[in-house]
Structures are given as structure tokens and as C-alpha cells.
């Protein structure tokens, strides 16, 4: 085979390979839109109305349930959804005590090749979690930032902080704490003179809890017994304090909806549009995405440290590149 014909062959083969790759990738990435719908119900089978449903899986979307608890949104066919419920109104960030957890990961769901109805998705009862920040001397800290995550998804820090007595409280509400259900990760960033001191603890919320974060002492969790309705300045003392290392019961709050609902459960009549649908909208400041990991998102995140930091990845890559180029250029061919 002459040089010219060999070159021509290789060019043709290379072109065909590139064209095939583009075709395969294009076919794999461009998929038709289908409608996914469902209904979110509370532990007592009442619909959870006007609350946010966020999909962190394939074909992200952000929508709200209607007055009957129904939601619908467009996503790509065959998508795998990871749905999270936020107890946040479609109209305002009116945080309420309504026995609905502030953030609850509803699980993963498979979408079929056509419109898919996920059916009723149950949410367990939310209980009040009263969180308090103390400094190393046991004095309350104002302006500390609480956080709560369920299965990696969490509520943002924009609307909640500790008050003058160190108790976590949303802006503009007349009750302390937040509602949670199941096994959640509670955290508190406590400002210090030179920065922040962060504490976190995984807690199974199967009833009202009081959680105290103290610099130097760690986290203590106690059963509050009754929810606290007022914002009085009286100090609430835990009645039965256990250390954070105590083995807590396993997740007893199980959603009634089962993850991985069979696909293609199509009910065309059941695709009513939820009020306030906001497909593909960006995440608002009040919610946080499921924590992003190296090999997977959610609870497995955080195992690979710096590799899960886009800034470290970017800086590391560019630094290696510059060093490599400089080394080669200085050394010559």
C-alpha cells in the first residue's frame, strides 16, 4: 500500500470513527421530553400542598405541588430522578410548623419512555428539632448558622441563624427550631474571633429533639418531649442529655413511597400540571443540592476530600499543565 493510499485510508477511517462517535454521543444525549408526575402526601395521607419538589438527578427540574399535593414536570425519557421535598412555599419562604420535614429526600425514581406517574409518595411525620449554639464557656452564641441535611440534601443558610439565646430560628417566625424526619445530619457553624467552628452530628429524628452544639464539648442530643412554641428568653435545659457518640436508633422514619418505582406506569389522565411549575429553574438560595461526590452524589459524598472540590481540581490541573509545559520547553525536544 503506497503512502498516499495508506494516508487516505487512515483519514477515511479516522473521519468515520469521529463521525460515529459524534452520532453515538448525540444519540445518547438527545432524548425526548416526557412528563413525570406524582402526589406528595404526609404521614396522615393529607396532601402536602404548595411545597417545592426538586429533582437533583437526570434532567434537573424544580417544581411545586398544587393544592392537592400533585406535581408534574418535564424531564428526559429514561431519566433517573432523585427527588427532594422542601417544606418551602411556592409563594414565599414562609417556614411553618406543619409536621412536614423541612427537607426530605424522597428517593430515586426511574422514568419510562413515555409520560410517567410516580403515584403517591409518602413523607414521614416531621418533628421539631431545637438547635442551640454555645461557646466554650457555655454562653449562647448569636449569629451561628445551623444546617440540616437528609440523604445529602439540605436547607440553605440564608434564612436561619441563632438568636440572642443561641437558639436556631428562621427569620420572621414565632417558633424556634426546624422540623426534620428520619436520619439527618445536623450542623452548626459557630463564629469565633478569627473564623468559624463547625460541628455536625447524625441524628435519627423520631420525636422532638434538642441538640446543643458547644465549642470544645461537642454535640449533645436529647429528647425534648414537647415542642417549643414560643421564643421566650428562658433557657431550656435538656432533661436527658446523651453524648453525641451514643448509638442512636436506626432510621425509623421510612417514606411510604418506594424508590425505584416501576417505569411506564403511564396514566395520561393523571398529568395535570402542578401550580407554579418551574421546570429547569435554578436552585434558589434557600435550598442546597444533594452533596456532590466523586463517584456518586448523596451520602457517599465527602469520601475523596480535595478531589470533590472543583476549585482544587481546576487549580491542580492548570498547575500541572503549566509545570509540564514549562519543563518541556526549558528542556527542549
Amino acid at each position: 500500500m503506497s503512502g498516499v493510499s495508506r494516508r487516505g485510508f487512515l483519514r477515511t477511517a479516522g473521519g468515520a470513527a469521529v463521525a460515529s462517535t459524534v452520532l453515538v454521543v448525540g444519540t445518547g444525549t438527545v432524548s425526548a421530553a416526557v412528563t413525570v408526575s406524582g402526589r406528595i402526601v404526609a404521614y396522615d395521607d393529607t396532601p402536602i400542598a404548595n411545597r417545592r419538589v426538586y429533582n437533583y438527578g437526570d434532567g434537573q427540574f424544580n417544581t411545586y405541588t398544587d393544592s392537592n399535593g400533585r406535581f408534574s414536570a418535564e424531564t428526559s425519557e429514561g431519566a433517573r430522578l432523585h427527588l427532594v421535598l422542601y417544606d418551602i412555599s411556592s409563594r414565599s419562604h414562609d417556614f411553618q410548623q406543619n409536621s412536614v420535614p423541612l427537607v426530605y429526600s424522597l428517593g430515586d425514581f426511574n422514568v419510562g419512555q413515555s409520560n410517567t406517574n410516580l403515584g403517591d409518595i409518602g413523607v414521614p411525620q416531621g418533628f421539631l428539632v431545637d438547635m442551640r449554639a454555645l461557646d466554650s464557656n457555655g454562653n449562647p452564641v448569636e449569629g451561628a448558622t445551623p444546617g440540616v441535611r437528609h440523604n445529602g440534601s439540605g436547607i440553605g443558610e440564608s434564612y436561619i441563624s441563632t438568636n440572642g439565646n443561641g437558639w436556631a430560628q428562621f427569620d420572621g417566625v414565632n417558633f424556634r427550631g426546624l422540623e426534620a424526619a428520619g436520619r439527618v445530619e445536623l450542623s452548626m457553624s459557630i463564629p469565633t474571633g478569627g473564623g468559624e467552628f463547625s460541628l455536625s452530628e447524625r441524628v435519627t429524628v423520631d420525636g422532638p429533639k434538642t441538640v446543643t452544639f458547644q465549642i470544645g464539648e461537642g454535640v449533645t442530643v436529647s429528647d425534648a418531649g414537647t415542642s417549643v412554641e414560643s421564643t421566650s428568653t428562658a433557657t431550656q435545659t435538656p432533661t436527658e442529655t446523651t453524648t453525641a457518640t451514643t448509638d442512636l436508633p436506626t432510621d425509623t422514619a421510612t417514606p411510604t413511597a418506594t424508590a425505584d418505582v416501576p417505569t411506564d406506569t403511564v396514566t395520561p389522565s393523571d398529568t395535570a400540571t402542578a401550580t407554579g411549575t418551574d421546570a429547569n429553574a435554578s436552585t434558589s438560595a434557600s435550598t442546597q443540592a444533594a452533596r456532590r461526590g466523586f463517584f456518586g452524589n448523596g451520602e457517599s459524598a465527602g469520601e475523596f476530600g480535595p478531589l470533590e472540590d472543583p476549585f482544587v481540581l481546576t487549580v491542580g490541573g492548570f498547575a500541572l499543565s503549566v509545570a509540564g509545559i514549562a519543563h518541556q520547553m526549558l528542556r527542549g525536544h
Binding site: 443540592a289 444533594a290 456532590r292 456518586g296 481540581l313 492548570f318
Partner: peptide, 20 residues
């Protein structure tokens, strides 16, 4: 890396190959 939330392993692979 910046406009999706897929696990970091995927952008890391494209970054390594692309940057190299």
C-alpha cells in the same frame, strides 16, 4: 464541572484528557 451536578469523576476524566 460547573453546570451539572454529576459526580466529579466524569469532569475529572475529561479534564485530565483534555488538558493533557
Amino acid at each position: 464541572l460547573y453546570f451539572t451536578r454529576i459526580p466529579y469523576v466524569y469532569p475529572t476524566l475529561t479534564f485530565a484528557v483534555g488538558l493533557y
